[in-house]
């Protein structure tokens, strides 16, 4: 039996842990609080922490003036588009690597991983010029393709680590019963792999939603997601802190919530299965 920690020790540790956790969380909290202030209260000195006139005006303003929902829609479309493409190409590949490995499988998986290591800036010039040439700058097609391809290795890896944990015998049994390979994937494998696929989808949505390098460089207005919309607040004349905070809160809320629910599963995908 482990010695039980004494209650007083436990209280002290709780206090210390919460203090540090709160320090890390505070900028987010402060952003959310500021989003409910008037612009005057947002820059008031001394700062107003809780006792000010709480207002929803910024949230109304942000979406009325800046067409917030169009950017939000773009973010959703880009994340889901790239995720769906990733699943279509990634699931069959992960299936093949997990259930019919050849002597090259390991090499191929590591090579896929290495494409993820390539710094985006190394290929910025040709990708930009290619998009320009094919009239794909600032289009959904262009950015979805980039997000899809740059996240594909992570998706395949994550699916692969989940698939590998499914017992082969079940698939063999279904094969004996005469199921075709396609049926095997759709009816036998996929249901068992749902948790793994769901985690993969979540990770990919989070990564696509928060991607900034490509979205800042290859979009402008038409296909610009929320990351770019927020960046437009960086100009000095756009210094409306309350509105910036409201727009930011709306932009990060869905992803922070998704992240909270899936922290543990994300670890596997983020570390390519090295930490579970």
């Amino acid at each position: 039996m482990a010695r039980k920690a004494t209650t007083s020790r436990r209280l002290v540790m709780t206090f210390v842990a919460y203090t540090f956790a709160l320090i890390l969380f505070f900028p987010i909290l402060w952003m959310v609080i500021t989003s409910f202030k008037s612009e005057a209260d947002a820059i008031a000195l001394p700062p107003k922490f809780l006792f000010f006139h709480w207002t929803l005006a910024n949230y109304i303003d942000v979406q009325a003036r800046n067409n917030y929902w169009r950017f939000a829609f773009n973010s959703v479309a880009l994340s889901f588009g790239s995720t769906v493409l990733g699943l279509i190409v990634g699931i069959p590949a992960a299936y093949a690597f997990a259930f019919a490995p050849t002597k090259n499988t390991k090499q191929i998986l590591l090579w896929m991983l290495s494409t993820k290591m390539m710094p985006a800036v190394g290929v910025l010039v040709p990708i930009y010029l290619l998009l320009l040439q094919f009239h794909l700058l600032d289009t959904f097609t262009g950015l979805i393709l980039i997000l899809f391809l740059s996240n594909l290795p992570i998706m395949i890896w994550m699916l692969y680590t989940y698939f590998k944990e499914i017992p082969h015998e079940i698939l063999e049994a279904s094969r004996m019963d005469g199921a075709s390979r396609w049926k095997e994937i759709v009816y036998v494998l996929s249901p068992m792999a749902v948790p793994g696929i769901a985690s993969t989808v979540l990770l990919n949505i989070i990564l696509s939603w928060n991607e900034t390098f490509w979205s800042l460089n290859v979009t402008n207005i038409h296909a610009a997601p929320l990351t770019a919309f927020i960046a437009s607040y960086s100009s000095p004349e756009g210094l409306f802190w309350a509105k910036l905070s409201a727009a930011s809160t709306l932009a990060v809320a869905p992803i922070v919530l998704l992240g909270w629910f899936s922290q543990r599963q994300l670890v596997r995908g983020l570390t390519f299965g090295a930490v579970k």
Binding site: T14, I230, I255, W260
Partner: peptide
Amino acid sequence: QPIFGQGAARVMAISPFFIMATVAALVW
């Protein structure tokens, strides 16, 4: 450590990782 309300502390501590870079930078 054995602390009270570990889940909430954990959620608060890891949240910044899910904040998009442009938001983090402009808020700071």
